[in-house]
Simulated assay, not measured.
Amino acid sequence: MSRIENQFTVQFWGVRGSIPCPGSSTVRYGGNTPCVAMQVGGKRLIFDCGTGVHVLGQSLLSQMPVEGHIFFTHSHWDHMQGFPFFSPAFIKGNQFNIYGAIAPDGSTIEQRLNDQMLHPNFPVPLQIMQANLNFHNIKAGQPIQIDDIMIETRHLNHPGEAVGYRVNWHGGSAVYITDTEHLPEKLDQNVLWLARNADILIYDSTYTDDEYHSPKLPKIGWGHSTWQEAVKVAQAANVKTLVIYHHDPGHNDDFLDNVGKQVFEKFPGAIMAREGLILQVPVLDPLSESIDLSGKLTWCEKNGRREF
């Protein structure tokens, strides 16, 4: 078995919410909207297609032909706006399985991706993509099996609905929970179930508690959570590594540095998501069935930021 077929890695290509925010004040964490790729035992899983998926696509052009599985949490624009610019989808010989839940209005993920590429919004239609695109309608609460990879799903608390994902492979687990708003008086049981004993929890931490409860412009009902709630979930679910994700476009690098320090004081196994960050999930060796200790997550402190 090759080295890549024995690994479970997570790479961040877009970490912002709402809108892209490139510029000198966001260069350290990045300004692209959501996209996280996982390499799981030789299989490529992609979660959301914000503008970060364009950068991912460019990196894949040297690896043709490409096969992958794309999972959408929902179809708000910041999570799908990069799909029309995903270069590998335009190249014949590539293949992508695309998964998404049916929206409350009854539309499928294929219909919604198609609609955003219609005139006058976009110059070319979805049908011009030459890759083999296979669309799958999923239902939150039902698992998805891809060979020996088990992907569990649950509803999230977000306007228009969203789906959270947990990827399980050879004893390792990575959880992708965005976009979701915490409940007022108790932890969301769907979130806790997905996050249980996870090696990595990627969690929507768009706001601080002060922003969420601001008397001037409260964010209650906007469909997003806070880093303080992320810590509560991680502690209650016995998570090993918490990743603060879906940064607000108004939060610059210095602001996020400060958030990172506060989070780490509350939960030492926490890090801030930034573009280019790669995490490795420890897994059972499929051949020896023993834990590969070299795959354990490690970090170092540099210039006030935690880096791998």
Rank of each mutant, 00 (worst) to 15 (best):
E301A: 06
L217N: 13
F85V: 05
A234H: 04
N137G: 01
K186E: 14
L183E: 14
P143L: 08
V163A: 08
F12E: 01
V167E: 07
M1Y: 02
V15H: 08
S294P: 00
P282A: 11
I200E: 09
L192T: 00
K216F: 12
T108S: 15
G223W: 01
K139H: 03
A103W: 06
V175N: 02
G141E: 06
N97D: 14
I98M: 03
E181C: 13
S173F: 01
Q189L: 13
A234R: 07
G31R: 03
L256V: 14
R154F: 02
E289H: 12
V281D: 13
V175M: 05
V283N: 07
N303H: 14
I46V: 15
H251T: 05
S288P: 02
L201P: 00
Q145K: 11
G50A: 03
I128K: 06
Q11A: 12
G171S: 09
V55A: 15
V10A: 07
I70W: 01
L201Q: 11
S87I: 06
N190D: 15
N168E: 09
M272E: 04
H213N: 13
V15K: 07
G82R: 03
G52P: 02
E275K: 11
G31E: 07
P143R: 05
L284W: 05
N132Y: 00
V15Q: 06
R306I: 14
H74Y: 04
V239I: 09
F135Y: 15
L287K: 12
W13N: 04
F264N: 10
V167H: 04
H213Q: 12
N114E: 08
D78S: 12
F122I: 00
I200M: 06
P65H: 02
Q58R: 12
Q81G: 00
S24N: 06
H136K: 10
W193N: 13
I91M: 09
K219Q: 14
S288T: 15
I128H: 04
T153K: 08
D253H: 11
P143N: 12
Q189T: 15
V243F: 00
V283M: 06
E5Q: 10
S59W: 01
I146E: 09
E275N: 13
N197M: 07
V40A: 10
E161I: 05
V175Y: 03
L293W: 08
I200C: 05
P120K: 07
T180M: 02
P218W: 03
T241Q: 06
V66H: 05
E301Y: 03
A101T: 08
G160W: 05
D209E: 03
I144P: 02
I278T: 15
L242D: 09
V163E: 06
L126C: 10
I46N: 03
R274F: 14
T51K: 08
G41H: 01
S225Y: 02
S294K: 10
E161N: 12
A174T: 07
H246F: 09
F8Y: 13
I220N: 04
Q39H: 12
D179R: 06
E5S: 13
Q145F: 04
D148E: 13
V243A: 00
H224P: 00
H79M: 07
I146N: 10
R305T: 08
R28P: 00
Q280E: 15
S2L: 11
M80W: 00
E152M: 12
K216N: 12
I91T: 12
P215E: 10
N252Q: 03
S75A: 09
R196A: 15
Q235M: 08
G269S: 06
A89N: 00
R28M: 06
K296Y: 11
C49R: 00
